[in-house]
């Protein structure tokens, strides 16, 4: 085949793959929003869940979701970034770091229900936290760690060694270089990881049913049980309680994910402008 023809065929195939992927994504979003948007009223967002979700709104689920996502991010980010900094800056690449690396990659692939089971036996039963936002958040945090560690590690490794050398050459310590130059420079990459994992936390169901419980009351603290939007959606759809309400909940979920991505995209652009 002549190069010109194969070039055209390759371009068409690649383009079709792209088109296929994008159209599935757009179809899902439009389908959900088409069914869900009519439900979305102020009433829906602000009322308590009534009759197991057949009536009322999803206010308690919104509050639970916020609690869960914020608590898990607050717990997982320092742990994950700390681990990544330690691996990249304080250990040399050897067998042990390879094993840590491999282990954390494996953790990323474990089905969430297994995390749920672990969270149930460890946090809920063994530590006696009961079905609560706290148990759920800690379980989510463990699930988020591999993503945060992986992306932070890549972001930190991509900071040139010469930046670190500048700090050394001015008489600074390793930690000063990490704190002042390496982490700020790697921050956009680190944030990408945090946002990706936030998406995972937002959409998690299996692990949360075991750990945060299914209570339809509005949680008053992180020690209350609570039902996240994803769990609520699952229950509505699975038990055939109310499909319209399920689509309404799904729409709120999708819109919040789009919103988070949009905001972080803007923040990141501003940050990048300042730092380069």
């Amino acid at each position: 085949m002549n190069p010109k023809l194969s070039q055209i065929i390759a371009k068409i195939c690649l383009g079709l793959a792209m088109l296929f992927t994008i159209s599935i994504l757009i179809f899902i979003i439009i389908y959900i929003l088409f069914h869900g948007l009519p439900i979305l009223t102020y009433q829906f967002l602000s009322s308590p869940i009534q009759e197991m979700g057949k009536k009322g709104g999803i206010f308690p689920s919104i509050v639970s979701t916020l609690y869960l996502v914020i608590t898990s991010v607050v717990v997982a980010t320092p742990l994950g970034v700390g681990t990544a900094v330690y691996i990249t800056e304080y250990t040399k690449k050897n067998k042990i770091t390879d094993i840590i690396q491999f282990g954390s990659d494996c953790l990323a692939g474990i089905p969430s229900i297994i995390y749920g089971l672990f969270g149930f036996t460890f946090f809920v039963i063994f530590l006696g936290m009961g079905w609560s936002i706290l148990s759920g958040s800690l379980t989510l945090a463990i699930m988020m760690l591999p993503t945060i560690i992986r992306t932070s590690e890549q972001a930190i490794r991509s900071v040139p060694q010469s930046y670190r050398d500048v700090t050394y050459s001015l008489g600074g310590s390793k930690w000063q270089g990490i704190k002042n130059i390496v982490i700020p420079k790697a921050l956009p990459g680190i944030l990408t990881g945090v946002i990706l994992s936030m998406g995972r936390a937002l959409s998690e169901t299996a692990a949360l049913i075991f750990t945060a419980g299914m209570s339809i009351r509005t949680p008053t603290s992180i020690f209350s049980s609570g039902r996240s939007m994803a769990v609520h959606f699952y229950t509505l759809a699975r038990e055939g309680l109310s499909l319209p309400m399920a689509y309404g909940t799904a729409s709120v979920l999708i819109i919040s994910i789009l919103f988070i991505n949009f905001i972080s995209y803007i923040l990141m652009n501003q940050y990048l402008k300042k730092y380069s």
Binding site: S162, L170, G172, S173
Partner: peptide, 28 residues
């Protein structure tokens, strides 16, 4: 290292303003 400065082959300005590059050393 504070007593001995070094200039590298390729200039390594930190991704900061000119002013912040300069005050970085003393503030360490």
């Amino acid at each position: 290292r504070k007593r001995i400065g070094i200039i590298f082959a390729l200039p390594v300005p930190l991704p900061l303003s000119i002013y912040d590059n300069l005050i970085y050393g003393p503030l360490l």
